[in-house]
Design a binder for these strands. Structure first.
Lengths: 202, 202
DNA sequence: ATTGGATTTGACCGCTTGGTCAAAGACACG
DNA sequence: CGTGTCTTTGACCAAGCGGTCAAATCCAAT
């Protein structure tokens, strides 16, 4: 399986197939609720074949989480300290909401993980994530200090953005059960824009 | 076990013990991740003994969800159409946040359920819950029409309250990992009050 | 066409899980 | 105290689980 010349064409295809299937299954059933058989079937492979590419169920899950953390944090990273404060924050909200719309499975995977105490990514939370948030919270505080946006608790502001945007992915079933057939993503952007404009306009 | 004179003293005690243990275990591991043995141990009973009081794992879970739905919806029910709009909504936010602080396990139980597609409570969502929300959204809309609060999408307003308050229970680990030792519930009430005041003040 | 490595699979294993059952023990009440 | 009911439990079972393995098959390069 491993040679000095990098992964085969088949290896690349099957690994991608497995990760996509695993994302589907893990995000809808949680780690414990997902079975290797389910993932294999979803990927169109036999179970031993799947375990030929990943040594264990745990390994698939880890690979998923690792690959996703960066993607998930990217929108926050690109919040530009030199830009116009309100534009920057509204842009972050928009990007984050778009992530919920396009990548709901990724959102639910993280939600599952954190709900259950984040046993596998706790280090990343109190390490990488915390440093990033500290950094951006300082930027927001500086915008407040210079009177460019209204005063708010910077950390809670960031939490609120995570919460409000991911809600539309994680609680999709509930949202749709309540509003009926209409697509929540049609009206959510305007609502969130209004909310953060009114909250932050100095 | 069942007689015509209602439950025994022992039955009452053990059923309560089991439901509390089950809430603890289900909320931290999800339905599939929880084992009957875990619940039994947490309750201080043997597994067969536990299954003497509830016929199956499923039955325990159902009993929990059933008993909780009302508790969970109560704060919204008591939103008074005759009261002062801003006071009513801020009161709802405060009550909901307090629920997250005092009953995080209940919040996580629901979150787990909805994350996985709400297989066991979908009827309640599109039935009881939907009617309640329709009702309260109409109240909010009337407040908007009469100019008592600023115009916002009533359904998204309600979603935002659920999202922002439950976030502090469901994502507790993440929140604490980011802000360190400080208790998020110390600063959250003020943040949320500010947010909804600025959003809704006409 | 042959060969050596990459890929796939059916059969299997040990463990955990939800659930059962018969028998023993605790309890209430005459 | 005795008796019938409620409660508790050790032993057990079948199904599902993650994972293994040897053998079969495929594939690319010579």
């Amino acid at each position: 399986m491993s040679n000095g010349r990098g992964p085969t064409r088949i290896q690349q295809k099957n690994r991608a197939l497995i990760l996509d299937a695993a994302l589907e299954v893990f995000s809808t059933h949680g780690y414990r609720g997902a079975t290797v058989d389910q993932i294999a079937q979803e990927a169109g492979l036999s179970k031993p074949n799947l375990l030929y590419y990943f040594p264990s169920k745990e390994a698939i899950h880890s690979a998923l989480l690792e690959g996703l953390l960066d993607t998930w944090l990217d929108p926050l990273k690109s919040l530009n300290p030199g830009g116009d404060p309100l534009t920057e924050i509204l842009g972050y909200v928009r990007r984050k909401l778009e992530m919920s719309r396009i990548h709901p499975r990724e959102s639910r995977l993280f939600a599952n993980e954190i709900l259950q105490g984040a046993p596998r990514i706790h280090d990343a939370l109190s390490g990488e994530l915390r440093r990033l948030v500290d950094d951006k919270a300082a930027v927001i505080q500086s915008w407040i200090d210079s009177g460019q946006i209204a005063p708010v608790h910077p950390y809670h502001l960031i939490f609120s953005i995570w919460s409000l945007t991911q809600h539309y992915a994680d609680f999709d079933v509930q949202v749709r059960a309540v509003i009926g057939g209409q697509d929540p993503f049609d009206t959510a952007p305007e609502f969130l824009e209004t909310l953060y404009e009114r909250l932050l306009r100095p």
